[in-house]
């Protein structure tokens, strides 16, 4: 699913020629990635490295833009909707991050997502720690949070702090400061509106 998103992102942003360049001599399926298949980590990493070059972005910048894109790209509206199920406001959404792994597990067993831990430092100030087997989860989440803050109409500052390698995994930290929960009208979201 992650590889499929990347494929969609590169094609949407830079055209299918750029994607052809990325997959060039990699064992990427002829007809493109399948969202429901799992691919080898090594292949994913190769594809990401190539995509960085093709889109002229750093690894973190690519992941951040990808996280943002999957929430705002109109054909992926269902993704945004699924995100909005996490809470009625942006703060609820942050609190629900702890539940993301269990949510994903019931919907799509087999998709590995980071563990999240949210800590409220002050009113409106949060620290999110995440742990994943590959680096970049923090950058991706930064993109998602920026998109979803907009979606909820919240004015927030999201910054990446440290990223360290420990016991075979990657620990990353983000800081979220919320200035105004009702900065803008939130985008429309109704339960049961799909289908």
């Amino acid at each position: 699913m992650i590889c499929k998103s990347l494929e969609g992102f590169v094609i949407d942003q830079c055209g299918s020629d750029a994607w052809a360049e990325v997959r060039h001599d990699l064992p990427v399926p002829e007809t493109g990635f399948e969202a429901l298949r799992s691919y080898d980590d090594a292949l994913s990493q190769d594809v990401f490295a190539r995509a960085c070059a093709a889109t002229d972005r750093s690894h973190d910048a690519l992941l951040e833009d990808l996280g943002h894109w999957i929430c705002v790209h109109p054909p992926l509206e269902p993704v945004r909707r699924l995100m909005r199920f996490s809470g009625t406001g942006f703060v609820d959404f942050l609190y629900a991050l702890d539940e993301v792994p269990s949510r994903i597990r019931i919907a799509l067993p087999g998709l590995e997502v980071p563990d999240f831990h949210l800590l409220q430092l002050d009113p409106g100030v949060f620290r999110i720690r995440l742990h994943w087997h590959v680096p970049g989860g923090g950058a991706f989440l930064t993109g998602v949070l920026r998109a979803m803050a907009d979606d909820y109409g919240t004015l927030a500052l999201i910054e990446r702090a440290d990223c360290t390698r420990e016991d075979g995994g990657w620990h990353e930290t983000l800081h979220v400061s919320i200035f105004d929960q009702a900065h803008q009208e939130p985008r429309e979201f109704r339960l049961g509106a799909s289908g």
Binding site: L36, P78, R81, L82, F85, R103, I106, A107, L108, L191, G192, S194, G195
Partner: peptide, 12 residues
């Protein structure tokens, strides 16, 4: 969560 699951299920 139940509604979320219905929606995710439909997408899948």
């Amino acid at each position: 969560d139940y509604l979320y699951l219905i929606e995710a299920h439909g997408l899948l």
